[in-house]
Nucleic acid binder design. Structure first.
Lengths: 184, 184
DNA sequence: AAAGAATGAGACATCAACGTCTCATCTGAT
DNA sequence: ATCAGATGAGACGTTGATGTCTCATTCTTT
C-alpha cells in the first residue's frame, strides 16, 4: 500500500523536477497507472504536490539522520551527508524549484527544521575550525542545497554521471575550483 | 520604447523567478500597467516568457563580454565575471528554473553559445593550472551557474544581502568551504 | 469457477486563465 | 481648446486542465 503510493510519488518526482507544470496525464503515464487511479490515490493535483514535497523532506531528514551530522568531525559528517543525499538529489531539485510548497505551514516547518540542522552543522564546523568563517553558515547551507539540486538536475538530464555526483559535489563544495599548488 | 519593454520585462522577472506560474494579472500589476497594455506589448504569455529568457541571455552574454573572460588570467576573469553577473542574478535564476525555455531552438542555441564560453574559460584555466583538473569543466560550469542562480534567489528572498552576493559566490566557488590552516 | 475488488478507458461538467474586444478616461502635442 | 494616441477597466468567448462519473475489463481471493 504505502510502497505503491511511494512508487507513484517517485515517478511524479522524475517528471515534476524537470517540468513543474506537467499535466496529470503525464505523471500518471510516468507512474504506469491511469489518471483515474492517480485520482483515487491522491485527491487532486495540490495534494500530490504536497505529498511529493513531504516525501522529499522525509528523505532529506532521513539522510541527515543516517549521516549522523550531529556527531563526529564536521568534514567527515558533511561527506557522509553528501553520500546519503545524492541518491535523492532529484527530490532536492524538486524542493528547490517548487517554492510554492513553502506556503504550506506544515511543509515549511519541516523544512525549517532540516535547514536548521544543516546550518548547525556548518556553524559547528566553523567553531571547530574546519569550515571558513568568512562565509556565513546560512550561505554555506544555502549554497550546499543549491549544489545538491544542481547535481539532481545534471544527473537527470544526463549531463553528469550518477556515479560522479557525490564526488563532484564534495570536491567542489569543500575544496573549491581553485587548484592549490602549495597544497600537494 | 525599448526601455519601456525592458522595464516590463524586469518587473516580470521579479515575479516569475519566484513563481514561474504567476498569472498575467500579477505580472501586469508588478509592472504597473494593466493586463490590456501587457497584451499590447507582448502577444501572449508564451511570447513574454520567451522575451524574458532572451533578455536574460542577452544580459548574461553582455556580462561575459564586459568581463572579457577570454583574456587575462583565468582566476581574475572569473572574478570579473562574478561581479558582472551578480547584479542580474535574478535573471539567471529565472533561466535556471524555466527549463521549458530550452524547447525553443533560438533560445537554446543562444544558451549553448554562452555556456560554451563559460566551459572554455574553465578549460583554459585548467590548462593554465589555475583550476583543478579533477572536476570536469562541464561540471564547474554547471555548478557555477547553479550558485549564481542560488545567489539570485537568496537575494530576492532577503536571505542574502545584495552587497554580499558577489563575495560569497566567489569565495565559496573558488576557495571552497574548507578552512586551510596551512594557507594563511 | 465465481464473487469481489481494483483498474483502465472514456465521457462529462466545471473552472480558471487566457486572448480579444469595446468603451471611457487620460495624456500630450499642436 | 482640440484632437490623436495611449491606457485602464471590464465584459466576453475560448481553451485546456482538472475533478467526477460510469462502465467494461482484469486481477485477486476463496
Amino acid at each position: 500500500m504505502a510502497t505503491d503510493r511511494d512508487s507513484v510519488l517517485e515517478a511524479a518526482v522524475s517528471v515534476l523536477s524537470r517540468r513543474p507544470t506537467a499535466h496529470l496525464d503525464e505523471i500518471a503515464r510516468a507512474a504506469g497507472i491511469s489518471r483515474a487511479t492517480l485520482h483515487r490515490i491522491f485527491p487532486g493535483r495540490e495534494a500530490l504536490i504536497r505529498e511529493v514535497g513531504a516525501l522529499g523532506l522525509r528523505k532529506f531528514a532521513a539522510a541527515l539522520d543516517s549521516a549522523a551530522i550531529e556527531s563526529g568531525d564536521t568534514q567527515s559528517a558533511l561527506r557522509r551527508l553528501v553520500d546519503a543525499v545524492v541518491p535523492d538529489a532529484a527530490l532536492c531539485a524538486f524542493l528547490a524549484g517548487e517554492n510554492q510548497l513553502y506556503d504550506d505551514p506544515e511543509i515549511n516547518e519541516l523544512w525549517e527544521i532540516q535547514d536548521a540542522r544543516v546550518r548547525a552543522l556548518f556553524l559547528r564546523g566553523q567553531k571547530e575550525g574546519a569550515f571558513r568563517i568568512e562565509l556565513s553558515a546560512g550561505w554555506l547551507s544555502e549554497a550546499f542545497f543549491d549544489l545538491v539540486a544542481g547535481v539532481g538536475w545534471a544527473v537527470q538530464d544526463g549531463r553528469l554521471a550518477p556515479r560522479d555526483g557525490a564526488h563532484s559535489l564534495v570536491e567542489l563544495f569543500l575544496g573549491g575550483a581553485l587548484r592549490r599548488p602549495d597544497q600537494s
